[in-house]
Design a protein around this nucleic acid. Structure first.
Lengths: 117, 117
DNA sequence: CTAATATATGAGCATCTGTTCATATTTTCA
DNA sequence: TGAAAATATGAACAGATGCTCATATATTAG
């Protein structure tokens, strides 16, 4: 038997929903998390700062692909970069990203286990 | 001065990250929330069940566009449908969606207000 | 049964996206 | 100064996406 999930939205959230700019901005952060490569980058940065080449090794894509994705994340204010010699070190710039990933992963873990059985 | 956000990931989350299927599934729920129309549909369903035509009026797109998006959301297990006469009533099928939207909107409200000043 | 209403779906299309390739830029080291 | 290492960027392209249009399906009312 399926359950319906109806949720109380407090007034603040309801106000956000009536603001087009805020809703659009919300879709943008979800978009950032919707790509496999970017998700890997961001989850890695949740643990600590990483250079571009470290991220490249971690994500198994070319250096160019990583740099392009990092630019997108920079433009959206989700990461920031500092130079350290030849390296450029990226860090998480937004505290909400980790929360979102945690909830998204919890959902996913349930979804995958349900599908498996 | 910018702050770095480094977050302790508990072991369970770290395990999720090493599971490709779970990570992919996580990107899929973020993808669902990354489109303006779908975000409106889901936020509306957070408040309560809605028929297709109610959702259509709310989102200012064609009935066809709504139905296509509802199919995507159904296929991903985020909403479910029950028939009531001529109408089909959609409801939220996943409790995590509301949490994600709340956090995403909080992030967005900050981002928009920072950009405004 | 027939018309009307509500919803679903397939095809087609314009746009967006993520990647690769080639090349530019920046920094270090000899 | 010149080569090597690390990163950034623009162009190009294949594939994905979200929409509209036309049409199919399902339910109810007359």
């Amino acid at each position: 038997m399926r359950e319906e999930h109806v949720v109380e939205m407090d007034e603040t959230i309801a106000n956000y929903l009536s603001n087009e700019d805020i809703v659009y901005e919300a879709t943008q952060i979800f978009d950032a998390l919707s790509d496999y490569t970017r998700f890997q980058i961001l989850s890695s940065l949740c643990v600590g700062s990483r250079s571009v080449s470290e991220l490249k090794d971690l994500c198994h894509v070319t250096q160019s692909a990583i740099s392009h994705q990092l630019r997108l994340l920079r433009d959206r204010g989700l990461v920031f970069a500092r130079r350290d010699g030849q390296r450029v070190i990226y860090s998480l710039a937004d505290e909400h990203v980790a929360t979102l990933m945690r909830v998204g992963l919890e959902h996913a873990a349930e979804a995958v286990s349900v599908e498996g059985e």
